[in-house]
Nucleic acid binder design. Sequence first.
RNA 1: GGAGAAUUCGCCUAGUGGCCUAUGGCGCACGCUUGGAAAGCGUGUUGGGUGCAAGCCCUCAAGGGUUCGAAUCCCUUAUUCUCCGCCA
Length: 424
Amino acid sequence: MIDLNLLRENPEAIKVSQRARRADESLVDQAIAADNANRAALREFETLRAEQNAFGKTVAAAPKEEKQALVAQAQEMAAKVKAADAAATAAAEELNALLWQIENVVMTDVPAGGEDDYVVVKEVGTKRAFDFEPKDHADLGTSLDIIDIERGVKISGSRFYFLKGMGARLELAMMNLALDKAAAAGFTALITPTLVRPEIMAGTGFLGAHADEIYYLPADELYLTGTSEVALAGYHRDEIIEGLGDGTHRYAGWSTCYRREAGSYGKDTKGILRVHQFNKLEMFVYTLPELAEQEHKKLLAWQEEMLQACELPYRVIYTAAGDLGSSAAAKYDAEAWVPSQETYRELTSTSNCTTFQARRLNVRYRREDGKTAPVATLNGTLATTRWLVAILENHQQADGSVRIPEALRPYLGGQEFIHPKAGA
RNA sequence: GGAGAAUUCGCCUAGUGGCCUAUGGCGCACGCUUGGAAAGCGUGUUGGGUGCAAGCCCUCAAGGGUUCGAAUCCCUUAUUCUCCGCCA
């Protein structure tokens, strides 16, 4: 939720932001009007209620013979209070509905525009020059007998797969490396629930424009999460986090992630680049608002460290406003080079949600003056199943084997290569 | 899934329609005391909104209802616990 004070003091800043996102800026004016109406309704109610409370004492204290007349008067008063209460509730709901539709105010350095208007921040590593025709990861997965898409489809339909043998072990090795790096950086590991209540889903900002991306279980009124960010953001819901001034709270959440991929028919249909179910280790940070930007840089640095440990060539882009999630004020994506496609594909994403998400989920900290204020939240990917695509393709050898990056070997009993199965 | 009990300000707790504008204890903070500490004593201690302030409004799991008036009575929901059933 956007800051109500900002709406009152500088609505133009919000409008500029909505414009950059190509979102509906008329919402801002509607929200200002609703705010004024809400305040007036609330004052009206409070005045009437104060009168009623005072009169109630008179009634209680009155001798029996006078009571009947006083009660008649009180009845009238009660009716007015009830009407004012209903009006105030309605006004508050209207304001709230508008506030929840306005997206986060973007950082001033975020480029305006859509998906293609990103800025390339840097390119790191060397794209390998192959002296043979590189295979794509799906073919490698088959010849190495480590990804079984056919059987995934047989039991669950398109975009499902099995990771098998060294494929399964490679993913777990990568996750363990990521977990170790996260622990060293001060993250607390969490294995999170993947089914969450509607208010948590809404609070994290995932039930907006892209709600059809999400699996829903109507019989239980629960959503299957597309990222552990949802559970991690909800973790401190309705809490005042003590001691946040002394240290940022960092969590590394591991979970299976579920995405419907509605509207992506025909896109990335081969292999496991775009699937309905995958695993992810997600970093999530609660920090002071003034530390958020600096923390965002740190999250990006940890992601790069992990990409480098996997020996992948990658670039970092700074996403344009229109391509940000509704909660994000700024976002960096790291994209790895995928040789079979001769293009960069997104492996990580890190967003600074400033105080937007915390306001919706009511997560606060105590300031030095004793008042409470919303915290800032940030998130970023540390490893996902999709990384296997880049690892397999970038480290394949002429003989059809795949070299395992050194950093992963300790988690695989020192094994250096994955060899094709006999006869493949 | 079935039966029962419970949910009050960090924790424990009092509270059966109006002096509840919520009791007491623990913990915590500050002060007095002390050479220093403990003990003792005193003061403060749910959170939110609004206001320069005094104050006022909301908040006793959530939502609705009854009533002039609800922590208290009624309904719905959530959560927790106990027992039974099932189960990795």
